[in-house]
Write a protein that binds this DNA or RNA. Structure first.
Lengths: 340, 340
DNA sequence: TACTTTTGCACAAACGTTATCACAGTTGAA
DNA sequence: TTCAACTGTGATAACGTTTGTGCAAAAGTA
């Protein structure tokens, strides 16, 4: 089966390639193509099931209708949700999505960005894995629009959309304090990402505001292992924590495992809260109170920002940095008990 | 910053476009390019940080180094895991991955496949959402290699890699029977996909082999809602089930919710097992015994099949259908109790 | 009538790459 | 000595699309 191109349509309709192309890519009015001709061409295209050859288009225009989506890893349900929403929404807007799963490795991320640049994608949406930013800066310099999600870099003028990590953590800590907790442990993730550090700051500041000493900030990655190990250690202390604030659901699962092994009951003996609000939290031994990240809003907002960038050929506007923080809300479940 | 093309390199090195191209795409020996010349060109390319324009390559070759990955939805952790492994592995092999999240809608899947065909991808890996197969057949007819994962179509000659759903369900049912259960309910997913139907058949056959009547097969989608509703209904029966076999982890979560609402204890009052083995099963109120799907093996195998197809320009070999079923194993936890 | 303007369409060049053909110079065999 | 085979390289034409330029014909203006 031979491929249908504008040439095919040109032959069928008896119009020139030029005219066919103009009708098909929507610049018909600009060139004042007769209604009649337009209909003729469109009908033929439809009948032949014509689809433009994207390679040719992007070669000609030196830009493509594809967007790079760079994700630390899809095995993290939160990132998978973001990816699902973003990719689905981009598709309805006519873009195709180049997925780059970086396995949480910064080196893979840098390589991924290089590849995307080589394919000259129309834009990039990225959830950075680490603290380096030079590779992202390269994209900006090449005029490729970039939007960061969830994690971002303060030192380069890149737009971002994220949960207000600080406010979320602050509010949650405040809530624990209001329940009478004093020894609140914070189980953190990777020090290399800003989302983690802002959450930790939120925790610290709330403790300070409550005139409480920072009891503990421990951990080094957003994994079950990290949560497990740190909780194990915490539970060996003389002054055990009365509440644990896991900064992600993966960390939470590890913490719960440790708690279970020590035969400590949630929420009777210890209160537990977390960040992310994965759907399975409802079904755990004790449903866990969590900070819900507004994934839908984040996805939509980031796409809007990216599209604005792509459309504005105005260089100034395109380089203006947009910073969007969305306030999360707390989903209350049964994992927190008043502490006297 | 002007883009670096083979023309740039040609000017720098003083060799023709032809020669530069030949060196750069590895056909140097075929055309007997002098070692010296090769080195000259490669050095220049490296120094200038040259990356071939993929649009031009795929336009010229009428095929691209990108692979379409069609997924029902990334919000299902099982699919997200598959997508993560597949995309990551494809990247290391030099392909880029076009992600199509279909939101579990068959119409979206069909459109996605059309788009991929238009972009003339080098191959497609797909987890079908429904029962239609015509769109996949179109790909095959256009000579685009396709591999189905997890779900497949028997009526078209498409290769597939899947868990042995039948064996898994059969073994699990047998296990429940061996524990003395007689009233075993089966909570199924979408009737439109073969994975579901094979699992149901495994359940039925095992019941038959155990001389037990099929107690119940209910449900209509791989969702929490379906699991919740059907379990609610089951628990209203006079003759309540002594064991529930959820055919996916999403269904399981719904079932657990219903069981909890009815104040029934797992495993004391009712035994529960499931399919998929999501990582959070360990952390539920009662850790749930599950059939583990060998995601890694499935991902690797499907990529191998696809690559073989892509490489074999031999038409016959390319059209031969490969059917790979991988036996799953049961991960035993604490959700099943002997029933007298 | 004799112009200008508008309307509607087509020619041809370009985007970066690769494959086909061609060819000059060197080596080896008859 | 003559011809064949080999070595190393280049010109050029395509792949499918978009767009600046051009140019008739129709319509408007004086």
């Amino acid at each position: 089966m031979k491929n249908v191109t504008i040439k095919t349509i040109s032959e069928v309709t008896g119009r020139s390639l030029t005219t066919v192309s103009r009708v098909l890519n929507g610049s018909a009015k600009k060139y004042r193509i007769k209604e009649e001709t337009q209909k003729l061409v469109l009908d033929a295209a439809h009948k032949l099931n014509y689809a433009p050859n994207q390679a040719a288009v992007s070669l000609r225009l030196n830009r493509s209708l594809s967007i790079g989506l760079v994700i630390p890893t899809l095995s993290n349900p939160y990132f998978a949700d973001v990816a699902s929403l973003v990719s689905h929404s981009l598709r309805t807007k006519g873009y195709s999505v180049l997925l780059m799963d970086c396995d949480e490795k910064e080196a893979a991320e840098i390589e991924a960005v290089r590849l995307l640049a080589a394919q000259n994608v129309g834009g990039v949406i990225i959830i950075p894995s680490g603290s380096q930013s030079a590779h992202i800066e390269v994209l900006l310099k090449r005029g490729i629009p970039v939007v960061c999600i969830d994690r971002y870099h303060e030192n380069i003028p890149v737009s971002y959309v994220a949960t207000n990590h600080y406010e979320g953590a602050y509010a949650m800590t405040q809530y624990l304090i209001s329940c009478g907790h004093k020894r609140i442990a914070c189980l953190q993730g990777s020090h290399a990402v800003i989302s983690n550090n802002l959450r930790v700051k939120g925790y610290r500041d709330a403790m300070g505001a409550g005139n409480l000493p920072v009891y503990s900030v421990a951990g080094n990655s957003f994994t079950r292992e990290s949560g497990y190990i740190e909780t194990k250690l915490l539970l060996q202390k003389k002054e055990k924590p009365t509440a644990v604030f896991a900064l992600s659901d993966t960390i939470l699962l590890g913490a719960l495992k440790a708690i279970k092994e020590e035969n400590i009951k949630v929420p009777a003996d210890i209160s537990v809260v977390t960040f992310d609000n994965s759907s399975y939290l409802d079904f755990l031994a004790c449903p866990v109170t969590s900070i819900e990240q507004p994934v839908g809003d984040i996805a939509n907002m980031s796409i809007k920002l990216l599209q604005d960038r792509i459309k504005s050929h105005n260089r100034e506007a395109a380089e203006q940095q947009m910073k969007v923080l969305i306030n999360p809300r707390i989903v209350f479940r049964q994992s927190v008990k008043m502490h006297k």
